[in-house]
Amino acid sequence: MNIPHKSFPIDDAHREPLRHLLTALADDHLILGHRHSEWTGLGPILEEDIAFSSIAQDQMGHALGFYSLLHEHLDAPDPDIHAFTRQETDFSCCQLVEWPIGDYDFSLTRHLFFDLAAGLRMETLSLSNFKPLAQLATKIRGEVKYHMFHAKTMVSQLGKSSDETARARMQTAINRQFGLALGMFEPRVGEQLLDEANIAPIESKWRDRWLEALNAVLDGTGLHIPDPERIEPVYGGRRGYHTEYLQPLLNEMTEVFRLDPQAEW
């Protein structure tokens, strides 16, 4: 993804909060992109292999876009170095994206939860006062639209299926990862400042819109969300606290790169 290299004026007070926002977005997409790519060759039908692989590529591209913004506007290192040489505790992805792919029901539900949130985020961010982000968000939004077509189609077909096992599996997958999904909206450092400057809203605004949109998506599928008031959100990811699943994935992601970080691969 080519982002025109222009330094855009950023208020000093906004630099740190913006760094937090962009790193969270970049890390979420990077890690989930890797997870989705693990379906390559293993999907329940060939068409699903191809779909997950395609979404994974988009997400990797989105991650690259966010890391590039960090590099160009906020003095972060080159995207490759930034993405593939940090310690686990320096990652700020939410824990939802770290979990292994599990079975198809888990991965499909996660894909729905994540892309629904990503779509809403990009919709708002495409109007951001931080113009380079607005441009990138506009581009990503167009791609996420197709991810949502896919997620909705599959979730509704399985939810409406006359097969009881499929319906039960989907409902269980929703129930089990709902706390993780709410963790996508963990409050960010300095989010209030960005909200006031119309750069990005606070996370709870996104969460409320997400809950509303999710209810609408599931309406008529026979599936439903658990009562959000009774589910504890799984926070910590944004502050560097991760599941046991992240470190092994990071080791794998950087295995070749670490053989010789100075070499060109």
Binding site: Y104, K160, S162
Partner: peptide
């Protein structure tokens, strides 16, 4: 592992 998905999809038109 994917058998349940195929089965459910086939029954969508039941």
């Amino acid at each position: 592992n994917g058998a349940w998905v195929r089965k459910a999809l086939q029954q969508a038109d039941a």
